[in-house]
């Protein structure tokens, strides 16, 4: 039963992630007073790209062609290791630290692909994306420290039982969630860090690394882009969200939670403008700072 739930959860995330992207875009359009494109648009775009001829820039190598697969694979492995329905089969590797290392693998190949395109924008995007990573990782580790303090393990498991036994940790938990949300916005490449809708060469970050891609490679990268949001949102909710006793109601709950997240993402995106690139370290430092504050509160002040 556990296996069925896990496989069902994985396939739901795989198939619905472009829809979630569409929901965000539609929310944004409605808030701006537009009707906006169909929520299914991403499926059409990906299908169209998949059937187009695929080209690569001159001077690029096998690295460039492997990169879409190499950036998508870690996300899929992360997805497989998440206990989407709240529990995992025995001996299933599900470790938070491993997730961070897998995300680093994705970033590494994004950077390599950018440099391999031999153009200006690829290098620019690679430089910016990896720089962003240097701010994101410490903040993620700050969040991990809090989870460790609550639950005494680094496995991806719901914190809810541990929180119930220790109600005093609720406020730090809320702060930690805020910190994690801020970091995730950066990791997803959304406003106020990166604007997925812009193709203005001087400001784009993630789009710049994709600039030279088209056809099947672009379709894979777009799928990765949508999956990243859904997968990490699922991961966040599994750990931080409520946990029900039944596997199936847990799955339904995850679906609702992720949908809410995508709508919230649309709301946030229409409320904020993009930060200057050189202000992003301050933004991420603030996220990490909130995490440290939560940690401090959880440790019950400083008693040696």
């Amino acid at each position: 039963m556990l296996w069925v739930a896990q496989v069902l959860g994985i396939s739901l995330v795989l198939t619905l992630s472009p829809l979630m992207w569409g929901i965000t875009q539609t929310t944004k359009a409605r808030l701006q007073g537009r009707r906006g494109p169909s929520v299914w648009l991403m499926y059409w775009v990906m299908k169209k790209n998949w059937h187009k001829e695929t080209t690569v820039p001159e001077f690029s190598s096998i690295i460039f062609r492997l990169a879409p697969s190499m950036t998508l694979a870690p996300l899929l492995v992360v997805l497989i290791t998440i206990p989407i329905a709240g529990r995992v089969p025995a001996l299933w590797p599900h470790n938070m630290l491993t997730v961070f290392f897998l995300l680093a693998l994705e970033r590494f190949w994004t950077g390599l692909a950018g440099l391999d395109s031999a153009g200006t924008f690829g290098g620019m995007g690679a430089s910016r994306a990896t720089t962003l990573g240097t701010g994101i990782e410490p903040a993620l580790f700050a969040a991990l420290g809090i989870f460790w303090e609550v639950s005494r393990h680094a496995a991806i498991e719901p914190l809810a039982p541990a929180l119930r036994t220790n109600p005093a940790s609720l406020f730090p938990w809320a702060l930690a969630s805020v910190s994690l949300a801020l970091v995730l916005l950066a990791e997803w490449g959304r406003l106020p860090v990166d604007n997925p809708d812009t193709h203005l060469e001087l400001t784009m970050i993630h789009e710049a690394t994709l600039l030279e891609y088209d056809g099947r490679f672009l379709a894979l990268s777009q799928w990765a882009m949508t999956l990243k949001i859904t997968v990490l949102a699922t991961l966040g909710w599994v750990i931080l969200g409520p946990n029900l006793s039944s596997l199936w109601s847990n799955l339904a709950l995850r679906l609702a939670e992720v949908t809410v997240t995508t709508v919230a993402l649309g709301l946030i995106e229409s409320r904020f403008t993009k930060l200057r690139f050189f202000q992003i370290p301050a933004y991420l430092a603030a996220a990490a700072g909130i995490g440290i504050l939560a940690f401090y509160l959880l440790a019950g002040g400083l008693t040696v």
Binding site: E53, T54, T55, V56, P57, E58, F59, S60, I62, R65, L66, P68, S69, L72, A73, S117, A118, G119, E212, G215, R216, F217, A219, L220
Partner: peptide, 15 residues
């Protein structure tokens, strides 16, 4: 994924 996206079947164009 590499097989599915047929990494050998590409055309080279200027950047």
């Amino acid at each position: 994924l590499a097989r599915l996206s047929r990494i050998g079947d590409v055309r080279t164009v200027p950047r």
